[in-house]
């Protein structure tokens, strides 16, 4: 085992809360197995030691919000064989992309005593707007099951089992009864990417779409139904799509349609 050449892993942070990279430390039971198979070469949040690049896998957390980061992400790309964007910030711009719908300078004026010190881009954008991303893991935070699965797939040269279908299929496989149909609770599950194992509906709450839009999300049809049947007002429909993944295109367009 000691002589085996292990792939080198780096973990990078951009504009984010650190929750996604903490999922790696949160792996607990699997962490030793991960460390046996992978050389954690750069992970400032977990290890003091820094091993120089290039790296085989880079897990990248966070969105691009400054000119400096817009350059730095290219450096990460150059020194990484495989780039995996992890979490809602890296894949859609995150909650901070709410600024994209307003004037960021105005926000800065309200929030900071010396706004002139703030140097930021007008928009928070996902990595894929800047570099070629090899793989994306959704979620706020990501699912550690999907993280381990992706790493395992990488190590074993196979496709990760990370389906892009609806949350509804996770609900049904678990035996959950639809909160929308049986209780009239508005739920974004039918347009949301699976991966959380239907966390909220399992506890009788509607889905908040932390994993962003699924493949072919028919947000228009769901909105019409929420409006007509659940009596949701336009501004509430707008808000439900303007959350953690507000700037993911299908959600952005849907929320703008209800402005």
């Amino acid at each position: 085992m000691a002589t085996k050449k292990r792939p080198k892993l780096a973990v990078w942070k951009f504009a984010s809360c650190d929750g996604c990279q903490l999922s790696l430390l949160d792996c607990e039971d699997e962490l030793l197995a991960v460390a046996r198979e992978i050389e954690v070469a750069y992970f400032p949040e977990g290890f003091r030691e820094v091993i120089k690049g290039p790296y085989d896998i880079s897990l990248v957390e966070g969105s691009i919000t400054t000119a400096h980061d817009a350059e730095r992400i290219h450096k990460v790309r150059r020194m990484s064989k495989t780039v995996i964007a992890i979490g809602a910030c890296a894949t859609s711009g995150g909650i901070q992309a709410l600024r994209n719908f307003k004037d960021v300078k105005e926000f800065a004026r309200y929030v900071y005593p010396r706004p002139e010190y703030i140097s930021t881009l007008s928009k928070s954008t996902p990595l894929s707007d800047h570099i070629n991303v090899d793989y994306e893991l959704r979620g706020c935070p990501i699912s550690k099951v999907q993280l381990i699965e992706t790493v395992s797939a990488f190590l074993n040269s196979r496709k990760p089992n990370v389906p892009s279908h609806s949350v509804c299929m996770e609900c049904k496989r678990k035996g959950n009864i639809c909160v929308m149909v049986a209780k009239g609770i508005p739920c974004l599950g039918p347009v949301t990417h699976a991966g959380c194992d239907a966390l909220c509906p399992t506890y009788n709450r509607g889905c908040y779409a932390c994993f962003g839009p699924k493949e072919s999300p028919n947000t228009g049809s769901l909105s019409r139904w929420l409006g007509e049947r659940s009596g949701m007002k336009d501004k509430d429909i707008m808000r439900s799509f303007r959350g953690i993944n507000a700037y993911a295109e299908p959600f952005r367009k849907e929320s703008e349609a209800h402005e």
Binding site: C168, M169, E215
Partner: peptide, 13 residues
């Protein structure tokens, strides 16, 4: 198809 959410619920139930 303008109404269908392609969520898969019909097939699951």
């Amino acid at each position: 198809s303008g109404r269908c959410l392609t969520c898969g619920n019909c097939t699951m139930v």
